[in-house]
């Protein structure tokens, strides 16, 4: 709480000293009130309540994130269980990982011609890597003892996967899922800025162009809060998972 007050104080001081263009906290609240008190209103395509924007963004993020999980998890499994595969593809993944969403988006536009699929594509390809890498680590770290149990009982490949590998790697996988969700949310703003979709990132960019700087701050705070909430949710799931399996 004290931390928030400090930032608020700094903000207020900044408005009166070096950052004359920065709206004061009071001004920001004044201008944002309508969006917060009526969070689901739709007054126009780019003039909606803040939670309505957020919801739009979340839908987009969910789509991209699910694609990332659906592709990333099996990829991680293959990477973790085959040494040869890992050697071949690890450098490639390390190279793809640091590419910015801003770089992927134009490629998505070229590939899909439309903004929504390319935004989803960008989210998916950027948020996939933590899932891939963590799943691979999880599979690689399955204790030999558990594998031996499966070998002695002569499990089929399917049984080995579902009865031993998957449950043993699950805690690692969930760490990957959590990190992936964080990145997916990070990417949404960039994606919406470029595509102009009616979400929280699109709103931010539009209000910058309309010189309503108060709404930029409103958007930033919303993005931060939602990101924090998502991470907190995933952490709770992760903890329960870890407790159940230890």
């Amino acid at each position: 709480m004290f931390g928030f007050l400090c930032v608020l104080g700094l903000w207020q001081i900044s408005c009166h000293t070096w950052a004359q263009n920065l709206p004061t906290p009071a001004k920001t609240w004044e201008m944002s009130r309508l969006y917060i008190t009526d969070p689901f209103a739709k007054r126009g395509e780019m003039d909606q309540g803040i939670l309505r924007f957020t919801w739009n963004s979340l839908v987009l993020v969910t789509k991209g994130y699910l694609i990332a999980l659906l592709i990333g998890t099996p990829l991680g499994f293959i990477l973790g269980s085959s040494r040869g595969f890992a050697k071949t593809f690890d450098p490639l993944i390390q190279m793809l990982k640091p590419i910015s969403p801003l770089a992927w988006l134009p490629l998505g536009l070229v590939l899909f011609q439309k903004t929504t699929p390319s935004a989803i594509f960008t989210i998916a390809i950027c948020s996939m890597w933590p899932t891939v890498l963590n799943t691979a680590i999880g599979v690689r770290n399955v204790p030999q003892d558990y594998l031996n149990v499966g070998r002695v009982l002569r499990f089929s490949r399917k049984k080995m996967l579902f009865k031993i590998l998957l449950p043993a790697a699950l805690p690692y996988m969930f760490t990957g899922y959590r990190l992936s969700l964080g990145i997916a949310w990070l990417v949404i703003v960039a994606a919406e800025m470029l595509t102009g979709a009616p979400g929280i990132g699109g709103f931010l960019w539009q209000e910058y162009n309309s010189l309503i700087y108060e709404h930029i701050i409103l958007s930033i705070i919303t993005i931060g809060l939602i990101g924090f909430l998502l991470d907190w949710m995933m952490q709770a799931v992760e903890r329960r998972m870890g407790a159940a399996l230890s």
Partner: peptide
């Protein structure tokens, strides 16, 4: 190769922690 015609008891019990006691035995 390994097989269930030889029952192995390991030094550490090696139970699968995500299954109940009964299920661990039942798997075999």
């Amino acid at each position: 190769d390994p097989g269930p015609d030889r029952g192995v008891v390991f030094q550490s019990p090696c139970l699968l922690p995500w299954f109940s006691v009964l299920k661990n035995v039942l798997l075999g």
